[in-house]
């Protein structure tokens, strides 16, 4: 079982756009704050969340770029990127598009991240 205080890594799953709710912006800020404190942070964007990975699209995208620059991971669901029609060259550099997103997400949630928050 998870022990309270055993917190070295944080996973943030984002499934909607920043325009739908300020939540996307808040959780990215939270992730950056966690990185400042030395935590490993991973973002997983699926469903409408992948639109946040368009370079230059706003504060959320800027925050994700900052996270990557600082050593954070930003994963994208391949099937949602394809569905969205976002050209590859418009994606934030350094994002990792995953061909089997559900398998990867389960591995991250169950074995890699100590805490998970959903957005």
């Amino acid at each position: 079982m998870t022990e309270t205080g055993n917190f070295n890594s944080l996973g943030i799953v984002i499934a909607h756009t920043a325009a739908v709710h300020e939540n996307a912006h808040q959780v990215v800020s939270l992730g950056l704050e966690a990185m400042k404190r030395g935590k490993r942070v991973g973002f997983f964007l699926l469903s409408d969340g992948v639109y946040n990975a368009i370079r230059g699209s706003g504060e959320v995208a800027a925050g994700l770029s900052q996270a990557i620059s600082g050593g954070g991971k930003v994963f994208l669901s391949s099937e949602h990127v394809v569905a969205s029609g976002i050209p590859g060259e418009k994606l934030i550099p350094g994002t990792e598009t995953l061909e089997k997103p559900y398998e990867a997400l389960v591995d991250l949630i169950m074995e890699e991240w100590d805490r998970v928050i959903m957005c």
Binding site: A15, D48, E103, L105, V106, M110
Partner: peptide, 18 residues
């Protein structure tokens, strides 16, 4: 899409033995 995502995640986690 959340209902489908939730079910797909549940199914995938079961596949992995959780």
């Amino acid at each position: 899409e959340y209902a489908e995502i939730a079910s797909k995640l549940a199914l995938t986690a079961r596949k992995k033995g959780y």
